[in-house]
Simulated scan of single mutants.
Amino acid sequence: MVSYKIGELKIRTIRQKAEKALGTRFDIRAFHDQVLKDGPMPLANFENKLDSWIKSQQTIAKKN
């Protein structure tokens, strides 16, 4: 039960980071797809994966 809560808190933190970084371009559906895409993994890997996704979304936004 503790690991579930820690994961929930980490996802919320990363979501807030993504919302702040992407502003109006933040897409909750795309974010959730990334959260679920690769299944379970260590939190450090998960955070790195989502940080990379945020950067890629920023790059896409700059091109448009």
Rank of each mutant, 00 (worst) to 15 (best):
K55P: 03
Q34N: 07
G39Y: 05
D27G: 02
R15F: 00
Q57R: 09
A18P: 02
G7P: 11
D27I: 03
M1Y: 12
Q16P: 02
M41W: 01
I60Q: 12
Q16H: 11
E19P: 02
D33T: 13
N64V: 10
T13R: 15
K20I: 00
Q58H: 05
E8L: 10
F31I: 04
K10I: 15
T24L: 00
V2G: 12
W53S: 07
Q57I: 02
K55F: 04
Y4P: 08
K5T: 09
P40N: 11
L36D: 07
N64L: 10
Q34W: 08
R15V: 00
Q34A: 07
N45E: 13
L9N: 14
I11S: 05
L36V: 09
R12H: 00
A44P: 13
K63I: 15
E8N: 10
T24Y: 06
R12Y: 00
L22W: 03
S3A: 06
I28D: 15
G39R: 08
K5A: 12
Y4V: 10
E19N: 00
S3L: 08
S56E: 11
N48R: 09
K37F: 10
L36P: 05
L50P: 03
Q58R: 04
N48I: 04
Q57T: 01
K62H: 08
P42N: 08
W53P: 07
G39F: 04
I54V: 05
A30L: 15
P40S: 11
R12V: 01
Y4R: 10
K49R: 07
K49W: 04
L50E: 01
Q16Y: 11
R25C: 06
G23N: 01
E47F: 09
H32W: 10
K20A: 10
D38Y: 11
G23R: 01
V2Q: 03
F26Q: 00
A61S: 08
I60C: 12
A61N: 15
R29I: 13
K5V: 14
E47K: 13
P40Q: 06
A44M: 10
F46S: 02
E8K: 09
L9H: 11
R29Y: 07
T59E: 10
F31C: 04
E19Y: 01
W53F: 06
R15T: 04
K17L: 06
D51F: 02
Q57F: 06
P42V: 14
K5I: 11
V2M: 07
I11L: 05
I28Q: 13
K5M: 11
S56L: 06
D33E: 14
Q16S: 06
K20Q: 05
I60H: 05
G39W: 02
I14S: 00
S52D: 10
